[in-house]
Every structure is written in C-alpha cells, then in structure tokens.
Amino acid sequence: MTALWLFLGAVGVILLIALLVLSLKVLREYERGVVFRMGRARPLYGPGLLFLIPFVDRMVRIDERVVTLTIPPQEVITRDNVPARVNAVVMFQVTDPLKAVLGVENYAVATSQIAQTTLRSLLGRADLDTLLAHREDLNVDLRGVIEKQSANWGVEVRVVEIKDVEIPESMQRAMAREAEAERERRAKVINARGELQASDELRQAAETLSKNPASLQLRYLQTLLELGADQNSTVVFPLPVDIITPFLKNPAGLGDALANGLARHRD
C-alpha cells in the first residue's frame, strides 16, 4: 500500500512539473505575446516570465525586430515596351502585434505578396530610363504604396530598394551604341567650340598685327628664329610684294643693292 502511494505521489510530482513547464513561458526583449484564452484575445504580453493556463491559453510570439524580405525577380514590361527582370528588398517591422495576428493570417507572406504585386504594377508605368536612372524616386513610390496596404496589419515598411535590373542583351547593345553616339556627338561639339574660340583669337591677333606693320615683321623674325633652331631645316621666307616692287621696276638698283650687300659681307 505504501509503494502505491509513493508511486502515485511520484506521478503527481511529475505531472505538476510538466504543468509548470507548460504554464511558464519566457518572452525576450524584442518579442511580444498575443495570448488567446478560450479563443478570446487577451491584452498584449510584454517581455519576461509569463504564466499561462495549460490547455486553455495559447500564445503567438511576435518578433518586433526589423525583418529583411527579399522579393523574387519579377518579369515586368516598362511603359516603352522593354522587358526587364527586377528584384528588390523590403525591410519592415511589426508595430502593432495585435493587428499583425488578428488582421491577417500571415503578415510576412501578405507583405511579400503585396510587395511583388506593387513592384510589377508600378514599374510597368515607368519607362526604361526612369527605371535605370531614377531608382530613388521609384523606391519612395514603392514604399508609399506598400505601406498604405500593410498599415492595416500593424506592419510598418522601413525600406524598399530595387536591387538589380536585368534587360535583354540586344537592348544592352543598343544602349551601348546610343551612349557611344552621344559621346561622339559631345566630342564633335567640343571640337567645334574649340575651333570657334581659336578662330576668334586668331582674328583678334590679325587685327592687332595689321595696325602696326613692324609687329608683323617682328613676328616673321621670331618665326625664323624658331625654325633656325634645327640646322637641317630649309626655310622659305615670304617677302611682301610691296617690298620687292621697287627693285623690279629698277633692276639696276637691285644689282647695286646686291653688290653693296656682298661688299659689306666681305668686310
């Protein structure tokens, strides 16, 4: 009889320990607990040690940390009929655990689905240039649309970023040709502007030299000095027609000038 009571007592202790294990729950600092007692929601439980009635209370843990959700690559067609493959990342956080449990079956899956749908519909209204060059504006629009839907579930969207945009190889080659043509156009424009500025400077220099003939002669002499630095060079020096015209009219004077020049050279 004593052994039976001892057995029953041991069984009772084991059952009591099991009930205590089932009744005591610990929530971490970043967790909140939504408890249903007989199917009815209780006030929100904070972090710490909790006591639940076994087989009566059921608790759902909600993580309030920021969750990173990767959106799978989506096939979209832009407004200018260019197919593209786009993937993105969404960072969200549960701000109202009761709404996250009572308002939607699975808030993470719901947020992922609404993000995919919004990504396809919004990018379909943008052209390829906007998709490639103005991602920040698209990110803001995506966040606004997704957050408007997820706010009813107690979920706040923190960040929405378009990660990568893949376009067909033929379109990449066409864009490369377009970029090359644009660079060539800019180079030609810059070269033309340089020629225009150089011609304007030359015109001003010619006007300045024409006002003083001595300046022109000094420029001739400076050019001869620069060319004479190379002893193997042949210099063709142009003479103004007005200088040699008197000698052509008086050949004897030209001979006398040459004779005088040779005599001075001998001296």
Rank of each mutant, 00 (worst) to 15 (best):
residue 201 E to A: 12
residue 46 G to N: 01
residue 148 K to N: 11
residue 160 V to W: 15
residue 145 V to Q: 13
residue 249 K to C: 02
residue 94 V to Y: 06
residue 70 T to Y: 15
residue 180 E to S: 04
residue 40 R to Y: 15
residue 13 V to R: 01
residue 221 L to T: 05
residue 9 G to F: 15
residue 200 D to Y: 12
residue 237 F to N: 03
residue 155 V to R: 10
residue 203 R to Q: 13
residue 107 Y to N: 03
residue 59 M to L: 15
residue 231 Q to D: 00
residue 157 V to L: 14
residue 260 N to G: 08
residue 262 L to R: 11
residue 153 W to D: 14
residue 35 V to Y: 12
residue 175 M to H: 00
residue 176 A to K: 08
residue 3 A to H: 11
residue 206 A to D: 10
residue 199 S to I: 13
residue 77 I to Y: 00
residue 249 K to H: 03
residue 102 L to M: 04
residue 192 A to F: 04
residue 210 S to F: 06
residue 52 L to K: 11
residue 169 E to Y: 02
residue 20 L to Y: 06
residue 31 E to I: 12
residue 208 T to F: 07
residue 21 V to W: 15
residue 142 L to A: 07
residue 16 L to M: 11
residue 191 N to L: 13
residue 254 L to W: 15
residue 171 M to S: 00
residue 236 V to I: 12
residue 256 D to G: 00
residue 13 V to W: 04
residue 222 Q to F: 01
residue 83 P to G: 10
residue 202 L to M: 13
residue 142 L to F: 11
residue 195 E to K: 06
residue 6 L to P: 08
residue 131 L to G: 01
residue 19 L to H: 10
residue 241 V to N: 08
residue 56 V to L: 14
residue 124 G to C: 09
residue 144 G to C: 10
residue 11 V to M: 10
residue 174 A to I: 00
residue 121 S to T: 10
residue 221 L to Q: 03
residue 168 P to K: 10
residue 215 S to M: 07
residue 152 N to F: 09
residue 144 G to D: 13
residue 79 R to K: 14
residue 128 L to G: 01
residue 241 V to A: 10
residue 74 Q to C: 11
residue 60 V to D: 11
residue 223 T to E: 02
residue 148 K to C: 06
residue 113 Q to G: 03
